[in-house]
Amino acid sequence: MIEPLYIKGDRWLHRLPAGYKLAALVIAGIGLFLVQNVWALAAAFALSCVLVWSTGVGAAACWRQVRGLVWVLAAIGVFAVVFQGWLSAAIVLLRIAALVGLALAVTLSTRSSDLIAICERALSPLDRLGWVDAGKVALALALTLRFVPEIWRHYQEIREAQAARGLARHPLALMVPLVVRTLKRAQQVAQAIDARGE
């Protein structure tokens, strides 16, 4: 049910190894905060737009990811203009937009499975130390992906059942049955896993 945000493609950004992109993102993050020049930040923002565009993302998908941020930026912008002046506002907004844009470009051009592989590599020393069981982490990740659609479906079923009984279709009233069924499900799933040995 949950489709990754990754856009299939073969451009150069897609082909760059995930580890490099993450490292570049972190460096950019630090760098952008050290830069105070509005033109440099504008250039960074323009670059991030180009990178996002180069992933081949559709306008609707892009807007959905950016929509929430636009409102936040508007509020921040108004605030900054009033208290700090136009230049400061421009610097703050461009910096945030550039960084979020770069991060978005990385997300759109990198497979979830590649990022998971990086997490596995990061966890493996802890696994060897015995602090983290990598197998259990992988299982937990799979279980979550497996059951999101089922829990969503159950949420819809409860809504319909309550509507049929004339109760207010308010999400908050559905919480108890949703949580109870999730707990019950957890018990059954755990038994099924145990029954299959390791």
Binding site: K136, A140, L141, A142, L143, T144, V148, I151, V189, I193
Partner: peptide, 13 residues
Amino acid sequence: TVLIALFAALIVV
């Protein structure tokens, strides 16, 4: 492990 996973799924929903 299952509870952790299913509650993560619940937060998603």
